[in-house]
């Protein structure tokens, strides 16, 4: 048996090799080289790169543009996560009852899930169009606004439109995972609380939410990592404007690298992005832990 076992381990090790080689060539090397580039003035427009120390970092951190970008990223990504989590959880609570027709409702919501980001971007450009967009028409019809809003021309409304796009597309996912988490809560606990006279809202705030909190934090972190990378919506809808209001960190870093061809500056922006993500994750994990101690 032991001989066979050794043979088996050898085979398993061989099976791991493709993934390891792939990681070495396309993850470790690009990340390491990227960190190195952040300390140089490398550029596609410059034949030879020079070591410049932390100059790229001090430059970025001293421009107001960079801080605007950080602010945009936090507002847009944070807003989208908060909104989609709230709606997704609410829909999950709605669906988490044995009512006839619930399957149909879920199937309906799932339709949003299959829409590619590129289609969301094109669609959002149309429904929020200033002259012929249906959103302006509806808002004017019910009297919420008097004149059409030029959504993409104002910094606040442009951000709102992007947040709505992100959130809308993520709602089905948040609903499905919230529902799965809700179904792990034993019905007896909630029934016992109901018998003891706890109102539905009380049961939700005192029992359901605390049980779900660790899962919600994990999900929020997953969405955070994903949305930090997402670039399609701002690229197509606003190109980052007006006046950089919707330039997220990914769009900013991408433009530095592949439009201004400033690899050094882009690499340091990317590194700061990685540091920011790590800090947020650390704080989130700390916060949930303390609540449980």
């Amino acid at each position: 048996m032991s001989y066979v076992f050794r043979q088996h381990r050898l085979a398993a090790l061989l099976l791991l090799m493709p993934a390891l080689l792939f990681a070495a060539a396309f993850l470790v090397y690009p990340l390491g080289n990227g960190l190195w580039l952040s300390l140089t003035n490398a550029s596609a427009l410059r034949p030879k790169a020079k070591f410049v120390g932390l100059a790229n970092y001090t430059y970025l951190l001293s421009t107001s543009e960079f801080w605007t970008v950080i602010f945009n990223t936090i507002v847009i990504v944070g807003g989208a996560i908060a909104l989609s989590t709230a709606v997704g959880l609410a829909l999950a609570l709605l669906v988490n009852r044995k009512l006839p027709g619930v399957a149909l409702f879920r199937a309906g919501i799932f339709q949003i899930w299959i829409v590619p980001w590129i289609s969301v971007a094109i669609l959002w450009g149309w429904i929020f169009n200033a002259d012929y967009g249906v959103v302006n028409y509806l808002l004017m019809d019910v009297g919420l606004i008097r004149a059409p809003v030029n959504w993409f021309a104002d910094t606040t409304t442009a951000r709102v439109v992007i947040i709505l796009g992100f959130a809308w597309r993520m709602i089905p996912f948040m609903m499905v995972v919230s529902l799965a988490a809700l179904q792990t809560i034993p019905a007896e606990i909630l029934e016992a609380a109901a018998v003891d006279g706890a109102a539905p809202m009380q049961r939700f705030l005192r029992i359901t939410l605390p049980i779900l909190r660790p899962m919600l934090v994990t999900l929020a972190l997953l969405q955070l990592v994903k949305l930090f990378q997402e670039i399609t919506l701002p690229w197509i809808l606003t190109q980052g404007g007006p006046v950089n209001a919707t330039t997220t960190l990914s769009l900013y870093t991408y433009k530095l690298a592949f439009q201004q061809w400033d690899y050094g500056l882009a690499a340091s922006a990317g590194t700061l992005w990685l540091i920011l993500l790590s800090l947020i994750a650390l704080v989130a994990v700390r916060l949930t832990r303390r609540r449980y101690q």
Binding site: A19, A23, S250, Y263
Partner: peptide, 21 residues
Amino acid sequence: VLLFFLGSLAFPLPLLMITLY
């Protein structure tokens, strides 16, 4: 190895893309 792969989801793509390019 597993942990590294999961962590790589957070690697900024434009940062990797420079060297990949």
